[in-house]
């Protein structure tokens, strides 16, 4: 029931967004027709051909509906810029972006949560202040600046990592993706440090922790209570982190010249490659919605009050 409502909400968001992107592209200065013509002479024949091919003479709602119909049949159209089917282009570039965000997420979780927990346990001491400051710096650092600094130090300076490229074979690919993934993870680490530290501190201050200590539960058991209960607020951060990562990949892929969805988005947007931008917007929205849905499922798994219909107090 709860999930059904969420699904319906997600569908509405996706629909609104695709309409928004559609309108935006057609409101943009310089007609799509102009872009499509490119360097070809603007003879009445070529214009008519283009208008016929892309249904540019139909009213906007009709164009939208025909695009939507195509999407539902699995046809995302062809790219104006390259002439390739959009689905193929996305298919080529999706694995890299997924690998990059996956790698980045793993790094962020492995570093961010332990740091946040350590900070909470040493609250107010030097180690905690260091963790907090590092978290804020991480949170403030845009991925492209971090990426370039990493390149300066580890690729150009120390020569440990390759400067550009994707690499061949698994080990080499991991090596090539490490600096981009780190650049992407830095912001997420900052966010996770902040959220997990704050959540754990809040839990440790609760009466039930004092009560658990007072009735003789060992330190690991008490920390287990608090960690388990701080999971719910940390889950909230997960949605924010993934959306932040998707925005971050754009910058990281451009910085490291990686052929992923992000660099495709930048290229397509500046070229007004309508079908590609539309499809990318749809794909990214679906990804975000899927993550948010997972977070909601996680909520109800983690919190019996959500699952059993109590009021979270």
């Amino acid at each position: 029931m709860f999930l059904l409502r969420r699904l319906a909400g997600t569908a509405v968001v996706v629909a609104l967004l695709s309409i928004g992107v559609f309108c935006l592209l057609y409101l943009a200065p310089g007609s799509v027709q102009q872009t499509l013509l490119g360097t070809r002479p603007a003879t009445p024949e070529t214009i008519a051909a283009i208008q016929a091919r892309y249904h540019l003479n139909d009213p906007l709602p009709v164009q939208y509906l025909s695009w939507l119909g195509g999407v539902l049949r699995g046809d995302l159209g062809t790219s104006i810029r390259t002439g390739m089917p959009v689905a193929d282009m996305l298919g080529q570039r999706l694995p890299l972006t997924l690998a990059l965000t996956g790698y980045g997420t793993v790094l962020a979780v492995l570093v961010g949560i332990p740091l946040g927990v350590a900070g909470a346990l040493r609250r107010g001491r030097a180690a905690d202040r260091l963790v907090v400051t590092a978290g804020v710096v991480g949170l403030s650092a845009p991925p492209f600046a971090v990426g370039l600094l990493l390149l300066v130090v580890f690729a150009a300076g120390l020569g440990w990592f390759p400067v550009y490229g994707v690499g061949e074979g698994f080990a080499d690919q991991v090596l090539h993706l490490t600096l981009p993934a780190v650049a992407l993870a830095v912001g997420a680490v900052g966010m996770l440090v902040r959220f997990s530290r704050a959540a754990l501190i809040r839990e440790l201050d609760q009466d039930y922790v004092v009560f658990a200590r007072a009735r003789g539960l060992g330190a690991p058991a008490v920390l287990g209570y608090a960690l388990r209960n701080s999971l719910v607020p940390i889950l909230t951060a997960a949605g924010l982190i993934v959306t932040g990562m998707l925005a971050g990949t754009v910058l990281v892929e451009v910085t490291f010249a990686l052929p992923g969805l992000g660099s495709l988005l930048v290229d397509s947007v500046t070229f007004k490659d309508v079908p590609v931008v539309q499809a990318l917007a749809l794909l990214l929205t679906l990804l975000i919605a899927a993550v948010n849905l997972l977070v909601d499922v996680g909520y109800s798994a983690a919190d019996p009050r959500v699952r059993l219909g109590g009021r979270p107090s």
Binding site: V13, L17, V21, L24, L25, A28, P29, G30, T243, G244, L246, A247, V250, L265, V266, V269, T270, K272, V277, A281, L284, T285, I288, A289, N292
Partner: peptide
Amino acid sequence: SLPALLVAIVVAGVLG
């Protein structure tokens, strides 16, 4: 629910 930066890239890019 949207990543602000991503939307800004699309909108600013499309509008020039």
